[in-house]
Design a protein around this nucleic acid. Structure first.
Length: 315
DNA sequence: AAGCGTACCAACCGCTCACCG
DNA sequence: ACGGTGAGCGGTTGGTACGCT
């Protein structure tokens, strides 16, 4: 017996989401939370599969999302975490408040990878590329070695990758000690010959333990992240169903503040005004922040009216 | 202005994991 | 212990925007 499809393929819409669909989904989730994703599209009046709804919400509509490109500190952190965790985007994303795994994955593939290559660092192994050539040559001389497997992907140390109860272990040693990670990158700086790109130079500088330019930023970011981590990891965004503001409200206030500060990156061409308004509501108005603790103390009617969605007609 | 190539990112697909009966 | 189900994750694809010729 084969596996059931995640949704009824017939009559299920695919492709880009329309503003109308977004409104429906947001309004529904903010009002009811989600019990099970499979039921969400039906209840919200959407012709989408539950999986698609979940993805849309997590990657785009969630109120605690930051917008815009990753800044240098975040980028650096992604590099460090990737060196330790490999392509475990969700784990990496869990340590960058307001960023999604998809966003980080895309940013890695489109920006960071290239920068690292340009810097002479293998983005897969985080080893200097020249060193890789030597290793490859050695391996060719001893074909029985299984070392090559380990070269393909940075091996997450088991205590890191598989045990979230030891999250402190994940902190790159050098971060905890105030140094930067990717120890081998120290070598890379002397080996890298093509550093024409300004941003590459900047990252390279960050990797240099003698450079203090980004260390303070990282330290701040890290301390902020560790403070918020428990919340981010354990409660992710089940917050919709939670009612205890004491437990979640303050942390969210923090996250939301960072949203509003990054709102200058928003472009209304890209993000419809109703969505920006809704993000603004979360970011600026403390009364409305109860919304995210979801005591639903917010003025629901006002919100719904703001989106122009007729909930009564729908539900 | 048109055609082409490239970059970017939202969304999909299929697999794995966790949970429950 | 086992099978079914839903959720989550990571890889991949496809559409769009943009720059160059």
């Amino acid at each position: 017996m084969g596996r059931q499809p995640c949704c009824d393929k017939l009559g299920v819409k695919k492709g880009p989401w329309t503003a109308e669909e977004d409104k429906k989904l947001v309004t529904f989730l903010l009002t009811h939370g989600h019990c099970c994703w499979r039921a969400v599209p039906k209840l919200a009046g959407l012709r989408r599969c539950g999986k698609s709804c979940r993805l849309r919400w997590t990657n785009y509509l969630r109120p605690d999302l930051k917008r815009g490109l990753l800044n240098e500190s975040e980028e650096q952190l992604v590099i460090d975490l990737h060196a330790r965790l490999g392509n475990r985007w969700s784990k990496i994303a869990a340590r960058l408040p307001g960023r999604t795994d998809n966003e980080i994955k895309n940013h890695w593939n489109t920006h960071i990878k290239k920068k690292l290559v340009k810097m002479g660092i293998d983005p897969v192994t985080h080893e200097p590329l020249q060193k890789q050539v030597i290793i490859t040559n050695i391996q060719e001389q001893s074909p029985n070695s299984d070392h090559d497997k380990h070269q393909q992907q940075p091996q997450p140390s088991s205590d890191i990758a598989d045990d979230d109860h030891h999250q402190n272990d994940i902190v790159p040693e050098n971060m905890m000690s105030g140094k930067n990670s990717c120890s081998n990158n120290e070598n890379s700086s002397s080996q890298t010959t093509d550093l024409t790109d300004e941003s590459s130079r900047s990252i390279l500088q960050d990797h240099n333990p003698n450079s203090s330019s980004s260390r303070d930023d990282d330290g701040l970011l890290m301390s902020y992240m560790w403070a918020a981590e428990t919340f981010l990891e354990d409660n992710s965004w089940d917050f919709l169903a939670k009612t205890n503001r004491e437990q979640y409200g303050d942390q969210f206030g923090l996250l939301l503040s960072s949203n509003s500060s990054s709102s200058s990156c928003f472009s209304e061409e890209k993000y419809p005004s109703w969505l920006m308004d809704y993000q603004q509501v979360f970011g600026d108005d403390h009364d409305h922040q109860d919304l995210v603790g979801l005591g639903f103390n917010f003025n629901e009617k006002e919100f719904i009216n703001g989106t122009g969605v007729d909930m009564e007609a729908k539900l």
